[in-house]
Design a binder for these strands. Structure first.
Lengths: 234, 234
DNA sequence: CTTTTATGATGATTTAGATCATCATTATAT
DNA sequence: ATATAATGATGATCTAAATCATCATAAAAG
């Protein structure tokens, strides 16, 4: 009994907030207060974290894994706005700018996420200037990223966008020239605004031209230079 | 002499910060301190407010007029990311997320803007929680807007995007079904990711189909319903 | 273990919209 | 006022990529 009670108390006061990134700016007290409004969640591939048009009540912080943030349109067509991995937030933009989620999020691989009640998160933002300025910096990066994607979508044609995607996986997600993506061809296509057929063709052309090695979901970059050139000339 | 001196002092302590929007959250003292780091600027059509790749040292607040925020790519191709009018900020995303401007801004019509030194702006953000949370809300809206544009670019074809543009002018910029845009056809095309020829053709088709009246830069919406339908079905 | 459903791969066909070319009209500069 | 440049407008042609169709293979479900 005594042990159990102790355990429970210990659990209640356990700090779920990581000691990384912008959370470094929080005091222990702030961490604890925020922590009491945080739920740690586990998601399997294809699990939904939140869905477009639902009331937006949480800010989501990815501890581990990978998720996709996407918008569905009429007729099953989907556009993937971005992926988010460890240390990244999701739904930040909706938290204080909208009362509903403006897009959906689903786990691409096994993912651990912290669901933070947005009111508690806001209280911390209000009281900790360094924390809020850091968040403003993060959101600025997100605006720049989405704008870049917009520019790439309008200026580059398929080979350029496919090269962009491969570069993104290699440089931003896996930090390796060789990697295995859990995404299907369909999902990859949604990430760069094309159809699965066109994506498959372009990937196989890259393979044929010895730019990449391709075996199922495993991609190995043979010529990083060519990938960079393709990505830059569009 | 005496009069002149008085005038000058009065000018120095003059508060340039507007009493609108998120600036309402500032105390008089904060307004004054910020005001000392603000320059009021006048721009004529085509004047550059800031240029891609320049060191980002200011946050820009539009008092009146209209500007375009755009990115140039190789070969004179340009993509317009968004327009910004009175009460809107520009370059917010670069201020604390980048040391350089990631895009350019130019006046579309005669524009008055406040150029706020980003360090002073940050000081206020750090010390005023309501102000920073409001800014976070504004930036969230911007992320949602750019994401929407990305989704529209990938899902809608030309008539849908042209209808989007007309709707945007009518509902967001001019609050009228009849308006005169200072943009050239080329600039309109850049706004919706197409070429001037295709834009001209589509606008003239709309005219022919009695959806709009078109005379040079003056547009009058005849059937708002059709515009909405076109914008929604894409 | 077999059936059913998702995924990956290719070929054939179609099409939206880019590109190229030309000319009229309207601004801007000399 | 006249020359020069920028803009708007249309037609002809071309092409990247979507769409449609089919089949192989892999994964999931019964």
């Amino acid at each position: 009994m005594k042990d159990y009670s102790l355990n429970s108390e210990h659990l209640n006061s356990k700090n779920l907030i990581p000691d990384t990134g912008i959370f470094n700016y929080l005091t222990n007290d702030e961490k604890l207060r925020l922590s009491n409004n945080v739920t740690l969640m586990n998601f399997e591939r294809q699990d939904i974290l939140f869905k477009q048009n639902m009331p937006s009540d949480h800010v989501v912080y990815i501890v581990s894994g990978l998720i996709k943030i996407y918008r569905g349109g009429r007729g099953y067509r989907v556009v993937c706005i971005k992926l988010a991995g460890p240390g990244e937030f999701a739904a930040l933009s909706c938290a204080y700018a909208s009362n509903i989620y403006r897009y959906s999020a689903a786990a691409i691989e096994k993912t651990v996420a912290l669901m933070m009640r947005k009111e508690a998160f806001r209280d911390v933002l209000k009281n900790n200037g360094m924390f809020s300025v850091s968040l403003i910096s993060l959101m600025g990066k997100e605006i720049i990223e989405v704008s870049n994607k917009l520019v790439n979508f309008s200026m580059k044609q398929l080979p350029g966008r496919v090269a962009d995607m491969i570069r993104y996986f290699s440089e931003e997600v896996f930090n390796n020239t060789e990697f295995t993506v859990a995404l299907t061809r369909q999902e990859m296509a949604e990430l760069i605004g094309t159809t699965k057929e066109s994506l498959i063709r372009t990937l196989n052309e890259f393979k044929h031209d010895k730019i990449i090695d391709l075996e199922g979901k495993h991609i190995k970059i043979i010529s990083n230079d060519l990938i960079k050139v393709l990505s830059e000339i569009g």
